[in-house]
Every structure is written in C-alpha cells, then in structure tokens.
C-alpha cells in the first residue's frame, strides 16, 4: 500500500502566559491511501495540535513547530512556504472542525462558502463552480440544493451544517481529509448519520481520512487503524482489532474499560483515576505512570522505547521489557 502521509518525530510547543507548553512531544505515524486512521485521546493530549500541524495551521505565535518532518507524497510540508502551503490546503488536504455551529461564517451564504475554495484553486467558471457545489450538496445528502445554496448558515440544523462543512472540505477532491472531532457537537442519532456519510464518501471518492476523536464508539465504527495519544506522546498504535482486542498499554486498556459496551457481561465501568500531567513541565518518564495501576520505578524515571509487536502494532511501555514480564510472573500487583 502506498503511504500518502508520514509524520516523524513531531514536536510542537506553545508559549503561554504561564510558560512553554509542550503540547506534542515526538509523534510519528503514517497514513496509507484510502484508509481511515483514528487518533484517540483525552482532551488536551495533543491530537488536535497534531492535526493542525499537518495543515500548518498552528497559530504562530504562540505555537511553534519545534522539530519533526511531515511528508505528504514527496513533499516535505515543513519546508514549504506559506504560499506553497496554501496551494495544498483545501486542494490536497482538507479539514473539518468540531463545531458546525461556528465553522461556517454567519454572514455569507453557504453557496459562497462552498464555491470560494473551488474558485481560489481551480480555473473554473462560475457556472461550473455552481454545478460542482450542487453535486457536492447532493453527495452529502442535502435536499433541494438549488434553494439551499442561497441560504445562510443559521437556516440549517447542526447536522445539516456539518454536512455542508464536509461538502466544503471535499469540493476540491482532496486526497486527505482531517476530521477533528466531527461528531462531538452533534446529537447521537445525527452522529450515526454523519459517520455513515464518512463511510459512503470514502467508498465513492477513495479519500484517506485522519479522524481525531475521544469517542471509542466512533473509532469502532469507522477506523481501520488506531493511534492512541497521551500527554503529547503517541503511546500505542495498531489496527482496529489489535487495539480493541489486544490492547497493550495500560492507558489503552483503561480507555476501553471506561467505555460502556452493550455486549459486556458484567456491567462494569472503570474510570481512570487522576488527571493528565501538566505539559508545562512534562515528566521525564512515562507521563501515564502516576495514574498507571501497573507503574514501576522505571516508568517514573525514563520514557520507554517503542516496541513493535506485529508489523502494525506498536507500543511505548516498560511492561513490554523482559524484566517487567519476569516481575509480572513472580508477583502480581496488589
């Protein structure tokens, strides 16, 4: 399979009132053509920052891409100028935001907002742009597109607006779509519809999707592969089955335990105690160690190296070390 995106050792810092926040601290992953990669984590773990970094949309100042490479096909996005980047945004890589209520400009018609990207990037007549816009509205399932084109965002419901946002993102036929919590702000029934729309779009256009979410239900539904982030680090990565059925990192296990499941025999929900560490001064060891039920001395002292379990499954955890396995065998944690 062809890799269309490869992120290597990404570091992003924000300088704030209280000091420098190390929001992303060495994240690496890749994306194949036509697949959906879900990036999962609690709020503040750096998943949105990572996605914004790919688009180079980190507000600077205060944000700064300190280190790392982002390769899209054969282009190094980190080395492109702002102007070159603009010819990629919306054309090759598109983005969808969390809240459809605020993602659309309240003072412009949705027709204008749909077509402006198209007019910016492609040499196209107004009539053709309109045709394309109508086609997109139909694709995302908006009835009466002809009339709707002239309307303003406030005349649409939340679910409809998210469909429009998706249409806007897809109108230039991008290869990669980054969806940042696309269903979080929606009702549950609408969520399901939007997720189905994603599947349909992927079938019809072959677009690759990076889905940022904290909702494992969403992941289970649409993702092919899953990357779990915690405190600015990517701690576990694997295909969907590996993550859901053989999670290795205690944090991933905790996440899965904290989600209600219909097929569970015992109705047991276990929240993870504690809060993520402060990223003003991130711990030198594993950031999850203070909350980890299986924490060892070493976890507090040093960050573990990435261990590959299969060709797809990777995890950053000291429990994978032979010596930890010995410890596990000899004494169980009380």
């Amino acid at each position: 399979m062809e890799k269309i995106l490869e992120v290597k050792d990404l570091h992003v810092h924000f300088s704030t009132y209280g000091g420098i926040v190390q929001a992303v601290r060495g994240v690496s992953f890749h994306l194949y053509k036509g697949e959906t990669l879900a990036i999962v984590g609690e709020s503040g773990c750096g998943k949105s920052v990572t996605s914004n970094a790919i688009m180079k949309l980190i507000p600077s100042p205060p944000g700064r891409l300190v280190r790392g490479k982002i390769q899209f096909h054969d282009k190094q996005l980190t080395e492109l100028s702002e102007k070159e980047m603009r010819s990629i945004r919306g054309v090759d890589i598109s983005m969808i935001f969390q809240d459809p209520m605020t993602a659309l400009n309240p003072t412009l018609t949705i027709g204008t907002q749909l077509m402006e990207g198209l007019k910016q990037h492609k040499k196209i007549s107004s009539l053709e742009a309109r045709e394309k816009a109508l086609e997109m509205l139909e694709l995302v399932g908006i009835p009466n597109p002809d009339e709707r084109l002239k309307q303003y965002p406030h005349q649409f419901s939340g679910g409809m607006r998210q469909r429009i946002v998706i249409a806007i993102a897809l109108i230039c036929e991008p290869e990669l779509l980054i969806a940042d919590e696309p269903t979080t702000a929606l009702d549950v029934t609408i969520q399901a519809q939007i997720l189905e729309l994603f599947e349909k779009i992927q079938r019809e256009t072959g677009v690759s999707i990076i889905l940022i979410t904290h909702d494992l239900g969403v992941v289970a539904k649409v993702a092919d592969r899953v990357a779990v982030m915690y405190a600015g680090k990517l701690i576990e990565e694997g295909d969907k089955r590996e993550i859901f059925y053989h999670p290795q990192h205690p944090y991933t296990k905790g996440l899965l335990k904290s989600v209600p499941r219909l097929d569970a025999t015992e109705a047991e929900l276990t929240p993870i105690d504690g809060t993520p560490p402060d990223l003003f001064s991130p711990p030198k060891g594993c950031p999850f160690a203070p909350r980890c039920p299986m924490a060892m001395e070493v976890c507090l002292r040093k960050y573990p190296k990435t261990k590959s379990l299969t060709t797809t499954h990777k995890v950053d955890c000291w429990l994978q070390d032979k010596r930890a396995k010995k410890l596990l065998a000899s004494s169980s944690r009380k």
Binding site: P277, A289, P290, A295
Partner: peptide, 21 residues
C-alpha cells in the same frame, strides 16, 4: 536501564510525582 528499577512503585511516590500548579 538498571534491573533494580523494575519493581512496583509505592503509592506515595506516585502522588509526589504528580506535578500540579
């Protein structure tokens, strides 16, 4: 990484490690 680091942490050590502003 020395072998002796591979032992379970004490509860209070963990608490001390949590940095909070």
């Amino acid at each position: 990484v020395p072998n002796e680091w591979f032992r379970w942490t004490e509860k209070d050590v963990k608490a001390a490690e949590v940095v909070s502003r």
